[in-house]
Design a protein around this nucleic acid. Sequence first.
DNA 1: TATGAATGAGAGTTCATTCAT
DNA 2: AATGAATGAACTCTCATTCAT
Lengths: 228, 228, 228, 228
Amino acid sequence: MEPRAAAEPRRLRADAARNRQRLIDAAEEVFAARGLDATLDDIARHAGVNVATAYRHFANKHELARAYLQETLDRAVAMAEEAARVDDPMAGLAQFLEQALELMAANRGLFDMLINGYDAEWFKDQMQGLITGPIRHLVVRGQQAGVIRPDVDGTDFAVLLPMLSSVSDRGVVACVPEPTRRYLALVLAGLRPDGTPLPGRPPTDAELRTAVTHKARGQHRDPPPEQC
Amino acid sequence: MEPRAAAEPRRLRADAARNRQRLIDAAEEVFAARGLDATLDDIARHAGVNVATAYRHFANKHELARAYLQETLDRAVAMAEEAARVDDPMAGLAQFLEQALELMAANRGLFDMLINGYDAEWFKDQMQGLITGPIRHLVVRGQQAGVIRPDVDGTDFAVLLPMLSSVSDRGVVACVPEPTRRYLALVLAGLRPDGTPLPGRPPTDAELRTAVTHKARGQHRDPPPEQC
Amino acid sequence: MEPRAAAEPRRLRADAARNRQRLIDAAEEVFAARGLDATLDDIARHAGVNVATAYRHFANKHELARAYLQETLDRAVAMAEEAARVDDPMAGLAQFLEQALELMAANRGLFDMLINGYDAEWFKDQMQGLITGPIRHLVVRGQQAGVIRPDVDGTDFAVLLPMLSSVSDRGVVACVPEPTRRYLALVLAGLRPDGTPLPGRPPTDAELRTAVTHKARGQHRDPPPEQC
Amino acid sequence: MEPRAAAEPRRLRADAARNRQRLIDAAEEVFAARGLDATLDDIARHAGVNVATAYRHFANKHELARAYLQETLDRAVAMAEEAARVDDPMAGLAQFLEQALELMAANRGLFDMLINGYDAEWFKDQMQGLITGPIRHLVVRGQQAGVIRPDVDGTDFAVLLPMLSSVSDRGVVACVPEPTRRYLALVLAGLRPDGTPLPGRPPTDAELRTAVTHKARGQHRDPPPEQC
DNA sequence: TATGAATGAGAGTTCATTCAT
DNA sequence: AATGAATGAACTCTCATTCAT
């Protein structure tokens, strides 16, 4: 019962690689459309393979979901790194957020992770680098330039990003042009210095490790509320 | 097999009325704690009645969820009406939002409706009055007083309210004091006039009818994305 | 998710009681014929009910198996108690063993417990009283009367009984008259004093608690070999 | 699709022969440790080859099990032949039984065949020679020397041997020193002449062909109980 | 010939919903 | 009207066996 290899960079036979990618693609489609509650049977059917084949490639539904989410998060990280290279700090931050939110738009699977706390433990680890790396960099630069209020931190984006992503998943999308950009602009406006301090404080780096999200569904039923 | 009555205002026998309320109360507890995925059996047990009794009072799980959500939304409406009576428009808006978000905090069932699009059609109808009534009133007053930017509308809150409610349900809650208030303050800051117009436009009243949310789970599998 | 009641002596509705008994009877038939690997579906079909009905009465396959095994073991205990009332100690012991082995004859489900270690923990508890109670009583009486060798103990029967039961489950049964009685007689002959001490020693009472059997299949995969 | 050869004594290419033996060795390890329920995948992995390779050498799991059991039984036969050369008949018999039981101790795969009736038909044929050859020889010698009761036959050991082997697989093993030897001694004591005839009669040679065991599991579901 | 991959047919379990008392 | 009981349709995951390279 060895764990069936998942992300190990072994060379796969041509057809297997094809099926693996088909499965991830199908997962992308199905999870994105129906959320992470979608059944593996559905995904396998979508990929044109048998469920058992899915289980050859991924130890369980969970792992397939990760593979799919990983692909998407990798793209988000690339975006963050690119944005960090933009000169104007506010523009860089805005660019990253726009791109990231675009990526998440109407993707229910991603949404389930960001918002509904699917696989929170794993997600935290993915998020950590993004937040404490390029994002904080952008924030600090903006604060030094005086265009971002001094009382926010990169860690606030562990809340703001999921929060904004929920916008892209609303029905409004279908009707209103660029809703994400609109509400992002509103939040960015709120990030400008205005002399009035925000209540509360940002999450600390340590809190990020346990605090990103706690709602659990599907496999992760009712994790006891984390203590601080 | 008569069609089982649902919410028709028939006179119920005393014990029947009692059971009905017990069920709603149990739904409140259970749905709030475990989200709308909770089983009817659980709720019935919590209410001290049998599942079949639940089906005598409510056509299906769905309807029971509505009854529970209704109660909560009614409270939100009351809050909005009360806030409309506050003199300072910004303070009134802030008060309503704070109270409403408080109400939603850690209420997974409500969250499932607001964010996950459970029973979207019905939810829209509930939201309509709230948005176009007291909330728009607060917004307009604020704009006349010059404390709210002119390019937002009450309908923007059909997006902002769910968006902010997602904050209250994050793990951060457990660790950071008053996270909801913090990010609400950020958004409120963004709502102040700053000379820079927001991109896009608010949803129209008509769009509200179809646009609030479209994600479907559980019973409501895959409603085709609404067209505009 | 309360554990669905199993053996609680609640009054069941007539039909439920009937179905419950049908299920146990079907379990008896099917488990006896095919062993404890038989599927719940098979048993339910045999009982003329849906599988889910089986799950209403028993938390899982395991519990149904226990209910069935319990019934059989109860009969064995009754036999032991009756045998303890026989005057001649050897005759009493022989009577009990004969009856018990008869009971077990060709019952694969029982065999799986006795021999294959299904649900060993639970079985130990059932066995304990039988061994240290009436069986030891019979043995001691026999030793005092000088008809049983002094170097055996009641606890030896925790080995001998399963061992002999394996005889009744062999194909020989179908062809040879009274095979169980034959090999039981052989063992009983060996139990008479002969001046030559047996090698080793009987299990202690404490060892009985962990020592009855350790083979695990089905649910009980690979329990680490118990340490002493 | 030619019928895949199984145990035909064709000359195999060197590497094929090597793989075949590797598979049998792996089967030995795995089946002995986990019983005949072990999966072919496990065994193949243990052998360092692919499952499909196993299917090139053996028609099915069944056949691989046979190959493994064959090897073990061959050793038992060798033991019997060696024991037949011991002068003292009782000592010879005891030596064989001890060695054979040692061989079976804690070998779950063998146990599944001896006790659980896996592949009974085939097993009978293997047993036949052993019983009617060296074992009967030992018994007859003992009877002529007056140290074995006259009313047993070699065929009784088709029952006694499996019966005793069940002892070695009990948890007692882990705690009690030499349990097999202990209960074997008890049975041997019973085999000594004591003037009291055993009830019943030994299986006849013919009965041996159908009578050894009839329990079937796994692939061999429910062979109808053989008639005599 | 040997392999990695693929598959169909379950098995155990759960849950919204309906039936019978 | 209320209950206890029953059900069918899923869903996740496993395994002996076959296919394609």
